Computed example of a mutant assay.
Amino acid sequence: MEDNASQMDLIENYLREGGHTVIRVSKPKEAVTHATNKKPDVIITDVVMPGMSGFELCRKLKGHPATANIPIIICSSKNQEIDRLWGMKQGAKAYLTKPFSQEQLNRAVKLAMA
């Protein structure tokens, strides 16, 4: 989940080049439905999105039995320590601040899935 299409493209390319299959969803409410039905290995979300923040999405997914164990990575331009701590408190496995490299993203995915 990313609110910026070019950033979403970049993340998707990084993941595909890292050997991952990507299910792309542009609306937070769709993400909840897709996560419940598809059970992805990991979910990557932004914090600032229309309709629901990444923090809210994280809480919602962690509170649902079907998605509670799916690791979540937050990728955000919000780079304050309090934002990272709040994301982790909501259940995120990792918090990356933009800009990040392909290596950083794929390392976070690998660690989140471990």
Rank of each mutant, 00 (worst) to 15 (best):
M8K: 15
F55Q: 10
P71V: 03
L15A: 03
H64S: 11
A112W: 00
C58N: 05
T97L: 09
V25M: 06
A66M: 15
A94K: 11
I44N: 00
K60F: 13
P99T: 08
Q7F: 07
P71R: 04
E2K: 09
N106F: 14
Y95I: 01
R16G: 09
E12M: 06
R59F: 10
K78H: 12
L96Q: 07
A112Y: 01
I82F: 09
Q102V: 10
H34I: 15
T21D: 09
P28M: 08
P71Q: 05
K110W: 13
H34C: 12
A35S: 15
M52P: 05
V47M: 05
P50N: 00
K29C: 11
P40S: 06
E56V: 01
P65I: 00
G18K: 04
A68H: 12
Q80W: 08
R84I: 11
N106Q: 14
E30F: 03
K93Q: 14
R16A: 07
N37E: 15
K98Q: 01
M88H: 05
I72Q: 02
P65D: 09
L105K: 04
G51V: 12
R16V: 15
A31Q: 05
A92I: 01
E81M: 13
T36C: 09
G18L: 04
I43S: 01
K110V: 11
I43L: 14
H64Q: 13
A35W: 13
A35N: 12
K110A: 14
E17K: 14
R84F: 11
T21N: 12
T33I: 14
L105F: 02
E2Q: 07
M49Q: 00
I82N: 08
K110C: 07
M1V: 07
E30L: 02
M113I: 15
V22K: 02
I70H: 07
L10M: 13
S101E: 06
T21Q: 12
L96W: 08
H20R: 08
A5T: 07
S101R: 10
L111T: 13
L61T: 12
S26T: 14
F55A: 09
N79C: 07
D9M: 00
V42M: 00
A92V: 06
N13A: 14
R59D: 10
R16S: 11
N79Q: 11
K62Y: 12
A31H: 01
P65G: 01
K38I: 05
A108F: 03
S26A: 12
S53Q: 01
E17G: 07
K98E: 08
K29Q: 12
